[in-house]
């Protein structure tokens, strides 16, 4: 019963659309998910048994639909045309005399019937899933903000120079792929950048270096920021940790009382 109620408005909409003047045709084709959807609609409209499709009639109806279209949008219409060619092919097969009175299995329409039946099933499954979606969307679950990993909780790995270099090249590659349209004549000095990084760290506690690097405006600035990181590590001012190879480098400000090996010493 529920299904009937759901189905009726939809068919009505389609029927109304179908009666619109030809110039609104473009809109009409859009309501179909694809050529098979259109075929199923035509079949249902003509009250045809899907297992015994009068190919001539359906092909005519289907092509009428396509003919009304003035402009062909290749991306979309190619798919409609593909099915049109299948219909015409089947029609021609039906016209050809066959050697023997063919059994059902040799019915040239079988390919189409199988596809339509399968597609029809999927359509029904979709409507059932839609109902579930709607029901489920009324049941809210709590969503959490991702917990911020504290420095002592994270499993730490001391970064070797190679890891850093590796990340650096990875970052460079990413930067390279970006299109820079504006060239800015902005000079960034290492000193400035170091100050910037330190104040960022003082404010935020830690830094996702990968994110920071990608946020840099220019290649030059990004490079300088990497040098700064190296410089800061060298001077034992910050602690850089990479949890896994190719992952981001997390940077913390070293507190003066923290021994050189810091939290990764367990």
């Amino acid at each position: 019963m529920e299904q009937e109620n759901q189905e009726q408005p939809e068919t009505q909409v389609q029927n109304q659309d179908f009666q619109l003047p030809t110039d609104s045709y473009q809109v009409k084709l859009e309501i179909f998910e694809g050529p098979l959807d259109l075929l199923l609609f035509l079949i249902r409209k003509k009250k045809i048994d899907i297992h015994d499709i009068p190919i001539a009639i359906i092909t005519r109806d289907y092509l009428e639909y396509l003919d009304k279209k003035e402009q062909i949008n290749l991306d979309r219409e190619a798919e409609f045309l593909l099915i049109a060619s299948l219909l015409i092919y089947i029609k021609s097969q039906m016209l050809l005399p066959r050697e023997q009175e063919a059994g059902e299995r040799d019915d040239p329409r079988q390919v189409l019937i199988d596809r339509l039946l399968e597609y029809q099933k999927i359509k029904v499954a979709s409507t059932l899933l839609r109902e579930k979606e709607e029901d489920q969307q009324q049941r809210w679950i709590r969503t959490f903000l991702p917990p911020v990993a504290k420095s002592e909780e994270a499993e730490l790995l001391v970064v070797s120079l190679f890891d850093l270099a590796e990340s650096f090249f990875l970052l460079m590659k990413r930067k390279e792929q970006e299109n820079f349209r504006v060239i800015k004549g902005k000079d960034v000095s290492v000193e400035q950048k170091i100050k910037e990084i330190i104040s960022f760290l003082e404010k935020n506690g830690s830094m996702d270096f990968l994110e920071y690097f990608s946020a840099q405006e220019s290649m030059e600035e990004a490079l300088v920021s990497f040098f700064c990181l190296l410089e800061l590590i060298k001077n034992h001012l910050v602690l850089a940790v990479q949890e896994q190879l190719f992952q981001t480098i997390r940077v913390w400000l070293r507190k003066s009382q923290t021994p050189p090996h810091g939290p990764d010493h367990e």
Binding site: E33, I122, K123, A125, S126, L129, R130, E133, E134, Q137
Partner: peptide, 11 residues
């Protein structure tokens, strides 16, 4: 909600 095309693909 999911678009009908996406839902169809998902089914």
């Amino acid at each position: 909600k999911l678009s009908s095309a996406a839902l169809e693909t998902l089914s």
